[in-house]
């Protein structure tokens, strides 16, 4: 599903004259198979988010190569990336990233709107998805009127609405209490097993065991393959 090879990244800070180059990732190679749940672990500031942002196309590297779902995405233009994200990638963020002026329904519907799906079809799919995450009675609530767990379910519903084969999650349980965290991890497991969705998740060690098939660790910008935790089911 994902093949990253020889990917390096450095942040440039400061004005042109006093430019500082901060290397963050060094020659990273990573392969994620279809149907896998891979956990990325590592200390804070080790470069986990940077790697995920590169795979998401939010930042671009001059070196290395990224192939997702058989497509060479490194080198994509901004609009190519946007189209690719819409069709192939789902995102779950630590801070949910819902649009505050839109209701739960509208937030979930947004990818369908961007894709240009007809209104009738949109309604059908959005309601179905809200039911699936158990929020149909909250559809006209604004994000500010929902609990953290509910907001995260809205954002998952939004990530799933266009049936992406891959979901990227940066500390998805970071803002949740332990009960909601458990629920979310179970849901991820279910999605992986039933729908065959591949997950790449940045998470903390102790949660990993319950769901991930494999973990990789980033230490000071170098990636090391960790131990295999579970066999992939399918």
């Amino acid at each position: 599903m994902i093949t990253v090879s020889d990917l390096s990244y450095a942040f440039k800070i400061g004005k042109k004259e006093k430019e500082n180059i901060v290397p963050v990732l060094h020659h990273v190679d990573l392969h994620v198979a279809e149907g896998e749940i891979v956990a990325i672990v590592g200390r804070s500031g080790s470069g986990k988010s940077t790697l995920l942002n590169l795979i998401s196309g939010f930042i671009k590297s001059q070196t290395g190569e990224i192939i997702i779902d058989g497509k060479q995405v490194s080198g994509f233009s901004e609009s190519k990336w946007a189209e690719f994200r819409l069709e192939h990638l789902g995102f779950i963020f630590q801070s949910f990233q819902l649009i505050p002026s839109m209701t739960a329904y509208e937030n979930v519907e947004l990818p369908l709107v961007l894709k240009g799906v007809s209104e009738k079809e949109r309604k059908e799919q959005t309601i179905k998805m809200l039911k699936r995450v158990g929020l149909e009675q909250y559809q006209s609530h604004y994000p500010g009127e929902l609990s953290g767990g509910q907001q995260q379910r809205v954002s998952i519903a939004r990530a799933l609405i266009l049936n992406p084969p891959l979901i990227l999650a940066d500390e998805p349980t970071g803002s949740l209490d332990s009960e909601n965290e458990k629920e979310l991890l179970n849901f991820i497991k279910e999605l992986n097993e039933k729908d065959g969705i591949t997950f790449l998740i940045i998470t903390h060690d102790h949660e990993v065991a319950s769901i991930a098939h494999r973990k990789v660790e980033i230490r000071d910008g170098y990636l090391r393959e960790g131990s295999k935790l579970h066999e992939v089911q399918r």
Binding site: F58, A82, L86, L114
Partner: peptide
């Protein structure tokens, strides 16, 4: 700009 950022992350093209 936050809404724009979210929309771009989800897959809104610059043209949109």
């Amino acid at each position: 700009s936050q809404d724009i950022g979210i929309m771009k992350a989800i897959g809104a093209t610059p043209r949109t």
